[in-house]
Write a protein that binds this DNA or RNA. Structure first.
Length: 322
DNA sequence: TCTCGTAGCGAAAATGGGCC
DNA sequence: GGCCCATTTTCGCTACGAGA
């Protein structure tokens, strides 16, 4: 009998705990959250919001041979780059495939690994009421290892700062701190799990803006960002659409509409439909954003607005944005 | 058959409203 | 006041239908 989907517990974003005691630290895996339900020789894989994704990752059928009793596992499907780092861009080539022929083709270039970090049911027993410490012990007793397709990475107790620094050196996304005594709360965001991400702060130039929709109709939806290209021009480095308060949006809207210009400083660098929607401003204002890295086409990944930098002028912005 | 546009889904963060 | 949930935005990708 195949167990039913259990919605995964979610972490809050925050800082490392001030006191390491009672916390477990593990790397933050840059992949997609997947709950695996096993039983009767069958497997179902579910996304965070309860969509069935079994067909997208046929190689994970090895799980059925690893656990002798019905079980529900929580983990992350990850694609590793040749250096062994999780690469979300690679994984995106697999995420939405549903047809067997497409999945077969994509598997030649991108293999995935299921990184298991929690156990929610075992042999018909609900384990979510157990402390994390006990759930992990049961999980490790299952000895889930399969030829690079399944991993159960260990965790570190204490030394959260060391784990954080190590993940930064290794190019990982960050760490997750989990209270060892915490129970698993299905579908809930809990401060018993705290994700601490590595973020970079950069100074960038404001080149234009896109109108908002819905609640943000009549104000700014996103700000178009640029950096000097080192040859007297500018290169587009993406947009930022989050991190603003309503007050800041109103200020930016008033500022931008008063300065609008017809000419694009980034001609030909955005796709034509997007370029038609942009309202351009002179690229003289400097803003600070934080982001989690760069996409393959040299755009800022997951950029969050921090504010304008009136103390800086455009000539002080480094082509690397530092 | 190919291209283009749209929709949907994955990730994330911030805000505001409702409720206790 | 704090928590939870809904809603908004971003990017990157695939699926699919329409039209050339």
């Amino acid at each position: 009998m195949l167990p039913a989907f259990v919605p995964p517990m979610l972490a809050v974003t925050g800082e490392l705990p001030a006191d390491d005691a009672g916390w477990a630290f593990e790397p933050k895996w840059d992949g997609v959250r997947v709950v695996a339900c096993l039983g009767g020789g069958e497997l179902s894989l579910w996304s965070r919001v309860g969509n069935l994704v079994t067909a997208s990752y046929p190689e994970l059928s090895v799980l059925t041979g690893l656990v002798g009793v019905p079980a529900v596992l929580d983990g992350e499907v990850v694609a590793f780059d040749p250096e062994g780092r999780p690469d979300f861009g690679l994984l995106q080539q697999r995420m939405h495939l549903t047809k067997a022929v497409d999945v077969r083709r994509a598997r030649r270039d991108v293999q995935v690994t299921y990184v298991v970090f929690d156990l929610l049911q075992l042999d018909g027993h609900d384990t979510t009421g157990l402390p994390l410490r006990d759930r992990r012990e049961l999980l490790e007793q299952l000895e889930l290892r399969a030829d690079g397709k399944v991993q159960v990475p260990g965790y570190v107790t204490g030394n959260g700062r060391e784990v954080y620094d190590a993940t930064k050196r290794l190019g990982l996304e960050g760490v997750v701190a989990k209270r060892l005594e915490s129970v698993y709360r299905p579908g809930k965001r809990s401060d018993a799990w705290v994700k601490v991400k590595h973020v970079d702060s950069r100074d960038v130039l404001v080149a234009g803006w896109l109108p908002g929709e819905g609640r943000r109709a009549g104000t700014v939806g996103a700000v178009v960002l640029a950096l000097p290209d080192g040859h007297g021009g500018l290169r587009h480095v993406g947009q930022v659409g989050t991190g603003f308060s309503d007050q800041v949006l109103d200020q930016l809207y008033a500022m931008f509409t008063a300065e609008e210009v017809a000419d694009s400083p980034l001609r030909g660098q955005l796709d034509p439909a997007a370029e038609r929607s942009v309202h351009w401003v002179p690229p003289t204002r400097v803003a600070e954003v934080v982001h989690t890295g760069w996409t393959r086409d040299n755009r800022l990944r997951a950029a969050v607005w921090r504010g304008l930098r009136p103390d800086l002028d455009a000539t002080q912005v480094d082509p690397d944005g530092r």
